[in-house]
C-alpha cells in the first residue's frame, strides 16, 4: 500500500500549469523528500493533496482511498506555509481547538502527548504570538500530529531554523516515523538536512515529476571522488590525467572521480615528485546530484 498515489494530476492558474500531469508515489512509512526549485509546484501539490486547492484533472489516493474520504482525511496532518494558529491564544488553546475539530475524546492527554513529541511540554501556556519561529514550526508539527496522524505533509518546516532547531526537527521527524509509523512528505530547499533523514526523494521541475528514487538508489548513483592539493598543482593535474579517466580541477582542488584510494594516490604522487599538502575522500550528495540532474534537464 502507498500512503500517497498521484496519477496525472494537473492544476493551472490563469492558464499557467503549476502542476502538470504529475505522478507521485509515497510508500507507507517513508520520509519522502520533495525537492524542486522555487515555483516548481511543490506547495501546490501539497495543497492539492490536503484539499486546499481543486485539481483540474488527475487522481489522488491516500492509503488506497480517494483523498476526499472523510475517514482517511481525519488522519492527515499538514503544516503548509503557516501553522494556522490564533496569535492571541495560547499554544494549549490552539491545540485544543484542533483536538476538538478532530473529535478526539482524551483531548488533554493527546495534547500532552504531541507537546512531548515536539519537546514543548513547558511552553503550553505561552501565547502563540510570543513563540519563536522554531517554536512555531514545532507547534505546527504538534498540531499536525494530533489524533494519531498516519500522514504528515510538511512544507519547508526547517526554513529559517538555526542549527540547533534543525537538529531538533530532524530528531522529531525520525521519532515520528520510527515510533508512530507515520509517513512524512517533506519539502525543503535545505538538501543537506533532508539527506540526513529522507528515505525517498521526488524531484519536481516545472510542475512535472522528473525523478523519484529511494535513498538507496541515490546511494548507488552517487559518485565518490578524492580531492587533492599538492605543491605543484599544474604538474600533478597533468600527471593524474594520464593515470585516471575522470580528473577535474574544481574549487582549488584536483578531483579524481570514482577513486577513493587516498593512500594509493598519495604514494603515486610522492613517488613522482608531487608532495601532497591535503587529500580527502568525498561523495556526491543529494545537493550535487540534484544540481547535476537539473543542469542536464536544462541542457
Amino acid at each position: 500500500m502507498n500512503a500517497i498515489e498521484i496519477r496525472g494530476l494537473s492544476k493551472s492558474f490563469r492558464g499557467l500549469y503549476a502542476v502538470d500531469n504529475l505522478n507521485m508515489t509515497v510508500p507507507v512509512g517513508a520520509i519522502y523528500g520533495f525537492i524542486g526549485e522555487n515555483g516548481s509546484g511543490k506547495s501546490t501539490t501539497e495543497k492539492l493533496i490536503c484539499g486546499h486547492l481543486v485539481p483540474d484533472k488527475g487522481s489522488i489516493k491516500l492509503f488506497d482511498r480517494p483523498y476526499t474520504d472523510a475517514g482517511v482525511r481525519v488522519r492527515v496532518g499538514a503544516l503548509i506555509e503557516n501553522t494556522g494558529c490564533f496569535p492571541n491564544s495560547s499554544v494549549w488553546d490552539n491545540l485544543m481547538m484542533q483536538a476538538i475539530n478532530l473529535g478526539l475524546s482524551d483531548r488533554a492527554g493527546e495534547i500532552d502527548r504531541v507537546l512531548n513529541i515536539v519537546r514543548m511540554e513547558d511552553s503550553a501556556r505561552i501565547k502563540f504570538k510570543s513563540c519563536s519561529l522554531g517554536m512555531k514550526q514545532r507547534i505546527g508539527i504538534a498540531m499536525a500530529l494530533l489524533g494519531d496522524s498516519a500522514l504528515l505533509i510538511l512544507d519547508e518546516p526547517i526554513n529559517g531554523l538555526d542549527a540547533e532547531g534543525m537538529k531538533m526537527m530532524r530528531e522529531i521527524l525520525v521519532d515520528i516515523t520510527q515510533q508512530y509509523g507515520c509517513t512524512v512528505l517533506i519539502s525543503s530547499h535545505i538538501l543537506g538536512e533532508l539527506e540526513k533523514i529522507a528515505t525517498h526523494y521526488g524531484i519536481i521541475r516545472q510542475g512535472k515529476m522528473i525523478q523519484e528514487l529511494s535513498a538507496k538508489d541515490l546511494e548507488g548513483r552517487a559518485k565518490v571522488f578524492t580531492s587533492v592539493k599538492t605543491q605543484h598543482m599544474q604538474g600533478a593535474f597533468g600527471f593524474l590525467r594520464q593515470k585516471f579517466s575522470d580528473v577535474r580541477a574544481e574549487d582549488g582542488y584536483i578531483r579524481i572521480y570514482d577513486v577513493d584510494d587516498t593512500e594509493g594516490i598519495v604514494g603515486l604522487l610522492m613517488q613522482n615528485g608531487f608532495p601532497v599538502r591535503e587529500i580527502k575522500k568525498n561523495k556526491i550528495g543529494l545537493e550535487e546530484y540534484y544540481i547535476e540532474l537539473m543542469s542536464k534537464k536544462e541542457a
Binding site: 486546499h52 482525511r73 481525519v74 501553522t83 494556522g84 490564533f86 484542533q98
Partner: peptide, 14 residues
Amino acid sequence: RSGYAKNIFTVRAK
C-alpha cells in the same frame, strides 16, 4: 485570514 481554515479542511473533506 489566520490560516485556520487550512487546519479545518485538511482533516475535513466534507
